[in-house]
Write a protein that binds this DNA or RNA. Structure first.
Lengths: 231, 231
DNA sequence: TCAGTAAGGGTCGCGTCGACCACAAGGGGG
DNA sequence: CCCCCTTGTGGTCGACGCGACCCTTACTGA
């Protein structure tokens, strides 16, 4: 029953941000990394993040540090996991609350190569500072699982999109091709998108209908992953 | 680009522990609460927990504080969520990493009414200290979701059990009845249990076969929720 | 005018799962 | 001792989801 008091701990927030960028002619998942300018791991690439502020909620800290280090404003943010191994930082005890975020492609291109930030394809993101390799692997694993049962991919596109574009997003995330007809039926039946009256013209083929994402209620806090408490 | 240094934060670990106890003649989910003996919320009921120790991993801190406050040694522990609202504690900034745990019924009975601990049916656990009401609701929500796709319920039973007992557990967690035959097929097909040669005798009816849980590999770290990284 | 390609709709078959039925196997009350 | 009750265990059937595959539609560019 010995209870020591609280020990000195620094709480950091880092974010794994996914977006879609063209690479070798195909859309591929990328994430932004920032080069560290101080020890530990000076010069290494790391996930964007920073210390939480006095009187600042965790999710707000995630958005703020993201804006400060990369200038990005994500369209979707979700808490992922808290990493707290005692030896994960050589300069004292640090507990990192990791958030996962999605950024629309136009927003991502806006801040392409500034701010000491580099966009890296997910499969090239290794050798990072701290335990960030593990963090990225877990975030990718969770994102892939989530596109299977939740309509999160719409946050990687702009306001209006064709179902072909949405299918491209799913294919880039999952790393495999999907049947266009089956994909269409699944997505439309899920109610996550609604058809508009407009069609995308200017393409070389039959003009596809434009769709819009259906916002599924407010979503913050621990229940953000689904509809909320069952009871 | 203003970056302040780390602010003074206390990191606590709390655990939502579920177990099955008889209540009104039926098995129902219970969780242990401890009465607080200091401010803030002196006298109120709260989840067991405590401060993380110097050089102590988060999951170890969860198990240690659990043992110190309740004497329980859970058979399953999983990180749930990190609560960090700036105003969640009136006495300074506290970030709470919440773990969710399952305890086998015999182990739970062993420490029934000692240590200033009270077992409470999940639906009676409200009016708790801090934001623990929200924490309990979210943990229950996640547990219910998880029994649907993962075989976690075996951690609430002893080593050997009948499929009828396992079905009772699922029914208590989900709060609804399940078809015995369909349940049997689903569980057996999942490979999560293996049949033994023994049968449970002494009952009033046909003696049911005893089963044993199949341990699905080592499971620690962020990948504990599933089989591991996809790639 | 025609070829080429993507949009979008239809059908079929398989696997999963819940509802429901049938039989097995033990104890207790007549 | 027999019947019945209860629970364990297995079988069948139909609804549903989803992937594989084919077809038509509609537009562009040669």
């Amino acid at each position: 029953m010995v209870q020591g008091g609280p020990v000195a701990v620094s709480v950091a927030v880092s974010t794994v941000i996914f977006t879609l960028l063209e690479h070798d002619g195909a859309l591929r998942l990328h994430l932004p990394l920032v080069r560290r300018t101080r020890d530990p791991f000076d010069g290494a690439w790391a996930l964007p993040g920073g210390w939480i502020g006095e009187g600042e909620d965790l999710s707000l800290a995630a958005r703020r540090t993201l804006a400060e280090t990369t200038g990005l404003r994500p369209s979707y943010v979700e808490q992922l996991y808290t990493f707290g191994r005692a030896d994960r930082s050589p300069t004292g005890r640090v507990v990192s609350v990791i958030y996962s975020a999605l950024v629309r492609s136009p927003e991502a291109a806006r801040v392409a190569e500034v701010h000491n930030v580099r966009w890296v394809p997910v499969d090239k993101a290794c050798g990072l500072a701290f335990d960030h390799d593990d963090v990225v692997a877990y975030a990718l694993f969770r994102l892939r699982a989530k596109v299977g049962y939740a309509q999160v991919a719409v946050h990687l596109l702009g306001e209006c999109f064709t179902l072909g574009q949405l299918r491209e997003v799913h294919e880039a995330v999952l790393g495999r091709e999907l049947d266009p007809a089956n994909f269409r039926r699944r997505v439309v039946a899920s109610g996550a998108v609604e058809a508009t009256d407009e069609h995308l013209t200017g393409g070389r083929h039959r003009p596809p209908r434009l769709y819009r994402a259906v916002v599924p209620e407010g979503a913050a806090g621990p229940f953000e992953t689904t509809e909320g408490p069952a009871a």
